[in-house]
Design a binder for these strands. Structure first.
Lengths: 222, 222
DNA sequence: GCCAAATTAAAACAGGTGTTTAATTTAAAC
DNA sequence: GTTTAAATTAAACACCTGTTTTAATTTGGC
């Protein structure tokens, strides 16, 4: 008995797919309502505006991901000692479990995050920080615990490098995966990419601040 | 004697600034021509289309950056042995020298690159690969030389992680720099960000493939 | 079945986009 | 100085965007 979806859910499903594929700005309401097979005006009726629809799409995933991540981080903090990879590992299961929302849930969520940051979606950043800022703070604390030698500023920058690397490969994921398949006979889904990311990111976050002193002088001259 | 700029150059200067700040799609021709103080139609007269204008803007920077990078890589290859940081270091001077084109040249170029990849600008990717694909190939070869234990596929993915981290912090550069200043009293320009990036990226690229075997099993269960 | 509320539908709205046209001005060549 | 080409201008074009309006329809409670 295939459940008959209400208009509101048909819109959300079509929107999350298109947003993940094309970004928020490049997806029009007419495209969404056409694929969802509903009337154009129903978006504004049910959600009020496109901006509110974007937030509703993100909220379904945030609500599934953020509490799970937070619980993992709390458990990690309780055990007293941890490594950078331990912290990153806390992200894996909550991310992979997003497949329960949607068969492509993991890559959809990461793509949405990527578009939220790379497009000018200031309202999305504020929305995320307002609702889940405490989770972000806990991530920072865990990384600090794992790397007591790093300053807060260094951790701040390195976590944004981490975010950048992650969302970039997810947003470009399909294209990159096709290249990788053609060149290396190695197709990569969201899970594969995550497993490739973690050693890279863990080493980067935990790296000594001045890996090679020669470089600093080169930069100083420049 | 302040040189009087021709219309074509006034357009290029206004366009590169707005493109770097707002991205390509969010910058309208009317915005460009208004700031450049030229007529709207002159863009299509001098460049043919907005797409061609975008490529012209990129080409000024590519032409200054790519040959310089390539020369540095060739010199590195000639000396037989190199490290990952050596390779990354080849990017620094060519990037910083872009300030000769424009006081903010370095961050403009990296922002343009970021927008070129994060927006759906397929024509820009093709344009870059067509003109400078051999430079990209040389980067791959140098990284392979510095890390003989890594497979070509691993290098492929890690260089895209690298690109992602780099362009993300540049595109979000201004916002991030403001946060960093507020939280850590530490303002960061393009050069500062590069110096923070290099230890992170070098450690990530050269990281062992299975940093912590426990993680692989967690991923395998997922 | 009836009525009121919720929902859907078609159409128009107001504003923005890149591009093109045709007329005018500027600049250079002879 | 005249002529010819290049460059600039203002206006319109065709299309797309999110949103609103008004009317028709469906739904749920009594």
């Amino acid at each position: 008995m295939a459940k008959v979806l209400k208009t509101k859910d048909k819109i959300l499903n079509a929107a999350e797919r298109l947003f993940a594929e094309q970004g928020f700005e490049h997806t029009s309401l007419r495209q969404i309502t056409s694929i969802a097979d509903v009337n154009l005006a129903s978006v504004n009726y049910h959600f009020g505006s496109k901006k509110a629809l974007i937030q509703a799409v993100m909220e379904r995933y945030h609500a599934a991901f953020m509490p799970a991540l937070d619980a993992g981080l709390v458990a990690l903090q309780a055990q007293g000692f941890n490594t950078t990879e331990d912290v990153l590992n806390c992200f894996v299961e909550p991310l992979l479990n997003l497949d329960r929302l949607n068969p492509n849930g993991t890559s959809i969520y990461l793509s949405l995050l990527g578009h939220a940051y790379s497009e000018i979606q200031g309202h999305l950043r504020r929305f995320t920080m307002h609702h889940f800022g405490h989770v972000i703070q806990r991530v920072l604390a865990c990384i600090q615990q794992a790397n007591p030698q790093l300053s807060a500023a260094t951790i701040f920058w390195r976590l944004h490098f981490t975010l950048g690397a992650t969302v970039f490969v997810q947003v470009s994921g399909q294209a990159l995966s096709e290249i990788a398949e053609a060149d290396f006979d190695e197709r990569a889904d969201a899970k594969d990419i995550i497993s490739k990311l973690i050693p890279f990111l863990a080493a980067g976050i935990a790296a000594p601040v001045n890996g090679n002193p020669d470089l600093s002088s080169t930069l100083a001259q420049g």
